[in-house]
Design a binder for these strands. Structure first.
Lengths: 363, 363
DNA sequence: TCCCCGAAATGAATCGTTTAAACTTCTGCG
DNA sequence: CGCAGAAGTTTAAACGATTCATTTCGGGGA
């Protein structure tokens, strides 16, 4: 006869030698208590006699037991994870938002499941599906496509969902956005108020919402200063927001309508290229030409001349998104809404030493 | 009497209205088959009669059923997730690695659980604990502290673990690294071979492994060219690898030992500051002074003069880490090893227009 | 001596899925 | 006509933790 005091299981011969995971049952056996008591030590320590509790804790320590989130979740707990779907992990705009979200969630024991779609709709669908299978408690998403029906579908299936940097089409979704019109307005107003006569707006395709909005803002600024937008703002369109296109645009800025003494770029990469292009053409910044960018990426401040730029509260966007998610999943009376942030103009050398000494408002 | 054909459950009054999750059982009822058959449709479609299969698929579609990873995992499946623990989400070095890891894993249906520790040991411990509870199938980690005992402990508890950008102390862990000594050697050799006489090495504290290694490499390069390292390499130590310190170091480069005609910086931020500082002091780059950086961050190529820099294969690091993880979790005969990458020198304008026209090798 | 009470611990049901084994039809063949 | 085997489907036992109704035990009061 064999000793049948306990089931000692040795790793199956075929399996990798990876030590079988310790379960709560083994802890219970070792501590000579029931499974329920071990669970109580874990979740409700106060109702366990202290001697027992110590014995169980010792058993947990010596076995290296770690509780399984899956089992916990299955029994009705929550998954303690939040999905984050962005266009590109290596884009600082998104990673700053991720940092914000993580900051807001980490103290509550959440973990972030990060997915980058690289703007592929198929990938977005794939990841949203996986996140739903994982039963994440909420999803922060920067949608890859215009059509949001599958995102709304998620939300309607009960998964708290927040759009990042994109307004919701209806009241069925929360969203966190930055006012790009206002950003464009800030940049243009700064230049025009500062005495610049004519601003070249180096902009990407109007099909990109951000580009269209920033343009509207620039024109609004002109109008508010009593200027004719068509005269004060000269648009120069480039196919992509890269430094190369910025550099190429420098020549066009000088060649088009005369009298341009300021350039407003749709992002910092364009502005960086523009600075390079202008330097190559012997144009001095900011004396002969003021330059402002958009995004305030890390290196904007490091350039010489340091680049004036419009800063977006990226970290705060992430925090706000996370908080909306938590609210939606905890508060039954939650109503969907849009949280809108204001961008901020960071003035630096590339636009400040105005050629006209005194600020002149309006005409 | 009530109709007892099926249990229709309406949301509990206290609960949020979030529609109860659809389970496989409800799908089975709707399609009038057993639970097992639904499961077969999901996992083993070929053994199900096609009429039945269609009926089940229709039921899945109309109920919006999504399978629960938690239950799947509990039943013995895998969690289909990989943990990634890095120092900082907003640092492009890490995000490029994350991109690589995601690229290598996404086709296998994995999802990345991303954690940034901000170099806090407590946070690292916290996250490693959570990842273990989530039963991730592997962990990629850039450790925050010198002591790796808790990381090794993870590995010994059967969780495949790979160190990123850090060599393992023993054979108990896999690791993926870049040869920083070689990187320092590449940079210094480039300058010295190109005719530069004396290189200032603007370096961070030796306590940072990368800094120490790059220094060793630079000195090795001098030695291999038959030069005396103490004469050919002049070290200038700065407290932190920032652009401000780079700018400040420019003056020190000119003030210290005469004859310095090249600067090698421990990273690109320092180099950027150095370029600014030199410009401010009226020193022309590369004619009077060559400058090389390290990391080849995105904007290095965009500067003027474009910055020569040492590129690390960040994306490939991530890919390799992920592949090691997969190998470790699938192949029982896996043995831990270090995968070491070679950095690559990217030569650009900041170091090329040598003041000595012809390349002279050795002394 | 008996009863009751509270504190502590137990045991069983449960969550949603997978899977091996069992069962039911049905077909074809001797 | 009987039966083997295939094809299709069902059944039931896991997986690991939580929860709650129940049991056990020791002590205090009558």
């Amino acid at each position: 006869m064999s000793t049948s005091t306990g089931q000692r299981q040795r790793p199956l011969p075929g399996r990798p030698v990876a030590s079988r995971r310790v379960t709560i049952r083994e802890v219970a056996e070792l501590a000579a208590v029931s499974i329920g008591t071990v669970s109580n030590v874990l979740n409700n320590p106060s109702i366990v006699a202290s001697a027992t509790r110590d014995r169980v804790l010792a058993a947990i320590g010596s076995t290296g037991f770690v509780r399984s989130t899956a089992a916990h979740q299955l029994r009705g707990g929550r998954s303690r994870s939040i999905g984050v779907v962005i266009l590109d992990v290596s884009n600082p705009f998104f990673t700053e938002m991720v940092r914000g979200a993580e900051h807001a969630l980490r103290d509550d024991g959440y973990v972030l499941v990060l997915c980058s779609t690289d703007e592929s709709v198929a990938r977005e669908r794939h990841y949203l599906g996986l996140l739903e299978e994982h039963r994440v408690e909420g999803i922060l998403v920067t949608p890859a496509e215009r059509d949001l029906s599958h995102v709304s579908a998620l939300a309607s299936r009960g998964i708290p969902t927040v759009l990042l940097d994109r307004a919701a089409p209806g009241p069925s979704l929360c969203s966190v956005t930055v006012d790009d019109v206002r950003g464009g307005e800030l940049a243009a107003a700064h230049l025009l108020v500062d005495g610049r006569k004519r601003v070249a707006l180096v902009n990407g395709p109007q099909s990109i919402r951000q580009c269209a909005d920033r343009r509207r803002g620039a024109r609004r600024a002109a109008r508010q200063l009593g200027l004719d937008p068509d005269r004060a703002i000269v648009e120069i369109s480039v196919p992509a927001l890269t430094d190369e296109h910025g550099e190429l645009a420098a020549r066009r800025v000088l060649d088009t309508t005369a009298g341009v003494d300021a350039v407003m770029c749709a992002n910092d990469l364009l502005a960086l290229g523009m600075l390079r292009g202008l330097a190559g053409l012997g144009v001095s910044v900011p004396e002969e030409m003021a330059v402002v960018g958009y995004d305030d990426v890390a290196f904007a401040a490091m350039l010489s001349p340091a680049l004036t730029s419009v800063r977006q509260p990226k970290f705060e966007l992430g925090v706000a998104g996370a908080e909306l998610l938590l609210e939606e999943s905890r508060d039954p009376r939650h109503v969907h809404r849009e949280v809108r942030f204001e961008p901020e103009l960071v003035v630096r050398a590339s636009s400040t030493a105005a050629k006209v000494p005194k600020i002149r408002r309006s005409r």
